[in-house]
Design a protein around this nucleic acid. Structure first.
Lengths: 346, 346
DNA sequence: CTGAAAGCGCTAACAT
DNA sequence: ATGTTAGCGCTTTCAG
C-alpha cells in the first residue's frame, strides 16, 4: 500500500467539479441539490464529474450556512447503567432512521457537568435528548428557548418530554404483593436528585393505604448493584416481607446479597425491581420487575426532537408534547407468598 | 416563561463582541485564541464583553476553517450487544478526557452499511473507531489513507488496531477443561464474517492436539442468546462434555436452554463463554468465561486515534500501532469435572 | 499591538 | 437555465 504520508490537503470541492464540467459552482450546487432547476443534460454531466472526481460535500461548510448539522446529542447520567442501554439503542435507531447522527455524552449524574455539556455542545448539534436531567425546571425551560430539547423521565412545563409511567407499574407491583398476603413493604429509594424516585414514592401512598399495607422508604441509594447489596442489609432490619427497588441493578445486587446471607427469595422475602434490564430474566431467582419501554421512549423522544428541530423556527413555535408511556409488572420468580412466621433472624 | 416563538436568528458572533469593544474582529479572535498576542488590557476588555454578551464561538465556522471538529465516531456492528457496551463506555470516557465528542453508529453487522456510514460520516468527524469491521483489508487500508481510523478486534497491516487476545483465553479454557478430565469439546462459532471467530478456532488446534482433546466446530451462529439456545441443541447431539461459546450472550442463552432440557451444568456438561459481559456473574449457574478487557480496548483505541488525528498530516505520517490486550479465563460455576458415564439421552 | 482583507466550501439571492 | 456575487462566522495572512 502506498501511503503518501499526509492526506491530500485539499479535498475535491464543488469548484473542482465546476471546473471539470466547465460551469459555475452554483450550477453544480443546484444540480446536486435541486435537480429540477437545471437541465437534464447538465445534471447528468455534473453527476458524472462529481462521481468521477469522488466529490463529497463538505459538511462543515453546509453547517455554517444552514446552522444545522443533522446531529442530535443524547445526554445520559451514566453510560455504565444498563438501563440506559435501551435508551441508547432506541435513540440510535430512530435518529438514523430520521437522518440524524447521534452524539453520546455521559453527564456523570452531575447537574454542573450536564449544564457545561449543554453549553459546549449546543452549537454543534441540532437538538438534545436529556435523560433523567438533574437541571432545574427553570434551567431546562431557558435551554429550550435556545435549542430544541426533549426530556426523558423528567417532566417540566413547556418543555417536550417522554416519561415512563413507572408509578403505574409500582402500583401493580403493590397489588401483586398484596394478593400474596404481604402487609409490610419497603421502597428502596434512588438518588435524591432523581425526579422519578420521588414520583414513585408518592404513587405508593394511595395504593398501600387502600390495601392496608405498611410502606416505608429506605435510602437514598445509588442506582448500582453495590448500593442494592447495601440496601439489602438495611431491608433485613425491617419487618417488611417484600421490597421494591428503585431499579434492577440494585435488585440484582440485593438478590446476591440475600443469597449470601441465607435469606431465601421469595421464601423469606419477595423482591421487585424496575426496568427489566438485560439479566433480569436470567438472574437467580429471575426478577419480578416493572417493565419500562425505555427503548420506545428513546424512539419517541427522537421523533419529537426531530419534529421540534424542523419546526423550531416556525411561527407556530416548537411543539410541547408530553408523552407518557405505560409500564407493567412482569412476574417472575423473585416474588411469592408472604412468609407466615417471623423471618429467621439474620 | 416567555417563549419568543423562534430562537434569535442571529446568535451573538465575534463581530458583535468586536463592535461592543470597538475593535476589529481579528483582535477579538486573537484575544480569545492567542492571549499572548494582544495587550493585557485588550484581552480583559474582550473577555468581559464576550462574557457580557454571552458569546459562544460557532463550531461550524471553526470546523470549516480547521477541517476538524473534535468528534470521533464509534462504529459497532450492533449496539444491542452487551459486549459492545464496554467499548462504548471506554471510548466515551477517553474521548471526553481528550476533548473529543463521540458519535455512535450501529452498522448492523453489514459491510455495506459500514462502508456507507464511513463515506457519509468521514467528513464530519476527525476519525473513526471501527469495531469488528466487516470490510476487507484493502478497503480498510484505503480508508486509512483518507482519514484516521483505529480497528478494534481486527488486524490489518498498516492500519492501527487494538485486538483482544481472546485466543489466549480460549487456550486457558481448554487447559482448564482438560484438568477437569474433559476429552471432547465443541466450539460454537460466531458469524462467518467474524475475524475473531476464525482466530479462536485456529488457536484451539495446537492446545487440543497437545492435550489429546477432540475439538469440533459448530456453526456459524449469530452472537445472540437465541442462537446460543439453538447451538445448545446442536451440542447435545455431539459426544462433547464441554462447549466453548463465541460469546457470553450465546452461552447464557444456552444455559437457559440446557436448564429447560434438564441437562445439568456443569454436572452433565461444562459451559464456557467469552466476554464477561454484565450478567455473566449472576446468571445461573454463573458463567466461566474468558475475560476480555474491552473497556480498556476502547480507551486505548481512542488514545491511538486521537494521536493519529493530531499527527495525521505530519511529515512522519500517521502511526501504525498494533496493540494486543491480554485476556484470561475466569472460573465460575458453569464448568466442572467431566461426567464419568454417558450423558443422559436428551 | 491592532486593523483590513482574504478566504475556508457552500448556497442563495440577484442578475442575465 | 446558468452565471455572478455576496455572504455564513471565524482565523489568518498581511499591512500598518
Amino acid at each position: 500500500m502506498t501511503r503518501g504520508g499526509a492526506r491530500p490537503r485539499t479535498a475535491v470541492t464543488i469548484a473542482d467539479v465546476a471546473q471539470a464540467v466547465g460551469v459555475a459552482t452554483s450550477t453544480v450546487s443546484r444540480a446536486l441539490m435541486q435537480p429540477g432547476r437545471v437541465s437534464d443534460e447538465m445534471r447528468q454531466r455534473v453527476l458524472a464529474a462529481a462521481e468521477e472526481l469522488g466529490y463529497q460535500p463538505n459538511p462543515h461548510a453546509r453547517s455554517l450556512l444552514s446552522g444545522r448539522n443533522h446531529a442530535v446529542a443524547l445526554l445520559v447520567p451514566d453510560v455504565t447503567n444498563p438501563f440506559y442501554f435501551g435508551l441508547i439503542r432506541g435513540t440510535q435507531g430512530q435518529a438514523k432512521a430520521r437522518g440524524y447522527r447521534q452524539v453520546l455524552v455521559d453527564t456523570e449524574a452531575s447537574a454542573s457537568v450536564e449544564a457545561a455539556t449543554i453549553r459546549d455542545i449546543a452549537g454543534s448539534v441540532d437538538g438534545l435528548i436529556l435523560a433523567a436531567s438533574k437541571l432545574s425546571d427553570a434551567q431546562l425551560q431557558e435551554t429550550y428557548t435556545r435549542i430544541p430539547i426533549v426530556l426523558v423521565n423528567r417532566d417540566v412545563p413547556e418543555v417536550p418530554s417522554v416519561v415512563l409511567d413507572t408509578p403505574m407499574g409500582f402500583m401493580q407491583a403493590v397489588e401483586h404483593l398484596a394478593s400474596f398476603g404481604h402487609r409490610s413493604v419497603v421502597y428502596i429509594a434512588g438518588p435524591s436528585s432523581s425526579w422519578t424516585t420521588r414520583r414513585r414514592w408518592r404513587a405508593l401512598q394511595p395504593v398501600t393505604r387502600r390495601l392496608g399495607i405498611t410502606v416505608q422508604q429506605l435510602g437514598p441509594y445509588s442506582p448500582t448493584g453495590e448500593a442494592g447489596a447495601a440496601a439489602a442489609e438495611a431491608v433485613l432490619n425491617t419487618e417488611a416481607t417484600a421490597c421494591l427497588f428503585f431499579n434492577d441493578m440494585q435488585a440484582i445486587g440485593a438478590l446476591r446479597r440475600f443469597a449470601e446471607r441465607g435469606v431465601r427469595v421469595p421464601g423469606d422475602l419477595s423482591v421487585v425491581g424496575s426496568g427489566d434490564i438485560y439479566g433480569a430474566d436470567f438472574c437467580n431467582p429471575t426478577l419480578t420487575t416493572v417493565v419500562t419501554p425505555i427503548e420506545d421512549a428513546g424512539r419517541v423522544a427522537t421523533d419529537i426532537l426531530v419534529g421540534a428541530i424542523e419546526a423550531f423556527d416556525s411561527p407556530a413555535g416548537p411543539p410541547r408534547v408530553h408523552e407518557v408511556l405505560p409500564t407493567h409488572l412482569t412476574v417472575r420468580e423473585s416474588t411469592g407468598p408472604a412468609p407466615t412466621g417471623r423471618r429467621p433472624a439474620p
